[in-house]
C-alpha cells in the first residue's frame, strides 16, 4: 500500500485537500467573456464584409447584450478578488506573460467600445432617441461614419478576448487538466458558439436564424472534435493527466460533464439544429438555451475539476 499524507501545516482553507480557490465567479467571467467575444466577432465580421443587412440581429440587436455581459463578467472577476481595494493595481502595469493582465487590459478597452458600438445603433432601435448633448450627437455621427475601421478594431479585440478566455486556464500548467494546448481553441470555439446561438435565438429574420444555426452547428462539431481530442491526449500522456481525464471517465465529474456539457450542451442542440435544417420546426430558443447552458456548465466544471488535479500528493 502507498500512503502519502500531509502531516501538519497544510490544512488551509481554499487549498486543502485540494484547491477550491476559484468558485463560480471565474467560470462566469470566462463564459461571459467568451459570449461577448463571439457576439462582437460576428457583428464586426458582418460589418467588415459589408453585409449588415444579412445579419441585422448580429450587428445591431445582439450587440446590446455585449456590454451587459462584459460588465457582469467584470463584476464577477471583481467579486473573485480577495484584496479588492487594490484592484487598481491591475492597471499600473502590463505583464504580457500573464493572461490575467492582458485580459484585464483587453476588457478595459473593449467594454467601453462595446458600449459605443451598441449606442451607435440605439437610434435604429428607438427612432426618437436623442443624445441631448451636441458633442454626443456629433460623436455618434462620427462613429457611424467610421463603422468599418471601428469593426476592424473590434474584431481584433474580440479575437484577443476570445483567445484570452480560452487560454487563461491552459496558462496554468500546474493543473494537469488545464495543461493542454487544445483548451484555448476549445474555449474560443465554445465562446463563438454561444455567441452564434444567442444571435440565432434573438433573430427574427428567418434567413439569419438559419445562417447562425448552421454556423453554430459547425462550431459544435468542431468543439466535440476538440473534446475527444483532448481526452485522447490526456490518456496518452503522463500519469497525472491520465488521472485528470479519469475524473471525467468514471470519476466524480463523469455524470455532470457527460449529461450537462456533452449531451445537453452539445449533442442535443446539434441534433435539434440538424432537425431544423431538415425542415422540422424547432423553436430557436431551445437549442440556443442549451448551448448557453452547456457553455456555462463546461466552464464551471473545467474550473472546479482542474483545481482538483495536481502534480503532488
Amino acid at each position: 500500500m502507498k500512503e502519502e499524507l500531509i502531516v501538519s501545516g497544510r490544512n488551509i482553507p481554499g487549498v486543502d485537500p485540494h484547491l477550491t480557490l476559484w468558485h463560480w465567479q471565474i467560470p462566469l467571467y470566462l463564459f461571459l467573456g467568451g459570449l461577448a467575444a463571439g457576439l462582437i466577432f460576428f457583428s464586426s465580421l458582418y460589418v467588415i464584409m459589408g453585409k449588415e443587412d444579412k445579419a441585422p440581429t448580429a450587428v445591431k440587436w445582439a450587440s446590446f447584450i455585449t456590454p451587459i455581459a462584459l460588465v457582469i463578467g467584470l463584476a464577477a472577476l471583481f467579486l473573485d478578488l480577495r484584496h479588492k481595494l487594490f484592484f487598481w493595481r491591475l492597471y499600473t502595469t502590463i505583464r504580457l506573460e500573464s493572461p490575467m493582465s492582458w485580459g484585464a487590459w483587453a476588457l478595459l478597452i473593449i467594454t467601453p467600445l462595446s458600449f459605443v458600438w451598441s449606442a451607435s445603433y440605439l437610434r435604429e432601435l428607438v427612432p426618437s432617441w436623442d443624445w441631448k448633448f451636441k458633442w454626443l450627437n456629433d460623436f455618434e455621427a462620427w462613429v457611424i461614419k467610421n463603422r468599418r475601421p471601428f469593426a476592424w478594431l473590434m474584431i481584433v479585440l474580440a479575437v484577443i478576448l476570445g483567445i484570452y478566455t480560452g487560454i487563461l486556464l491552459s496558462a496554468f500548467n500546474a493543473r494537469p487538466l488545464w495543461n493542454t494546448s487544445i483548451l484555448g481553441p476549445l474555449f474560443l470555439t465554445s465562446g463563438l458558439s454561444t455567441g452564434a446561438a444567442t444571435i440565432m435565438w434573438m433573430s427574427k429574420d428567418h434567413e439569419e436564424k438559419k445562417l447562425f444555426g448552421r454556423i453554430d452547428l459547425l462550431l459544435i462539431t468542431i468543439e466535440v472534435f476538440f473534446i475527444i481530442h483532448m481526452f485522447m491526449g490526456f490518456l496518452a500522456s503522463s500519469a497525472v493527466q491520465i488521472e485528470a481525464a479519469k475524473l471525467f471517465l468514471g470519476g466524480p465529474f463523469t455524470v455532470p460533464f457527460w449529461t450537462f456539457v456533452m449531451i445537453l450542451g452539445l449533442l442535443l442542440p446539434a441534433f435539434l439544429e440538424i432537425l431544423e435544417w431538415k425542415g422540422y420546426r424547432i423553436p430557436a430558443a431551445v437549442p440556443a438555451f442549451l448551448v448557453l447552458f452547456g457553455g456555462l456548465m463546461f466552464r464551471l466544471i473545467m474550473v472546479e475539476a482542474g483545481q482538483i488535479t495536481r502534480y503532488l500528493y
Binding site: 487549498v15 480577495r82 484584496h83 479588492k84 487594490f86 493595481r89 496558462a171 496554468f172
Partner: peptide, 23 residues
C-alpha cells in the same frame, strides 16, 4: 496583490495560501 489567485492556480506545489487579510 489583488488576491486574484492566479499565482496559486499556477503553483504546482500549492505553496501559497490566501492570507485572511486578502493578499
Amino acid at each position: 496583490c489583488i488576491g486574484c489567485g492566479a499565482c496559486m492556480e499556477a503553483c504546482p506545489y500549492d505553496a501559497r495560501y490566501p492570507h485572511p487579510d486578502g493578499f
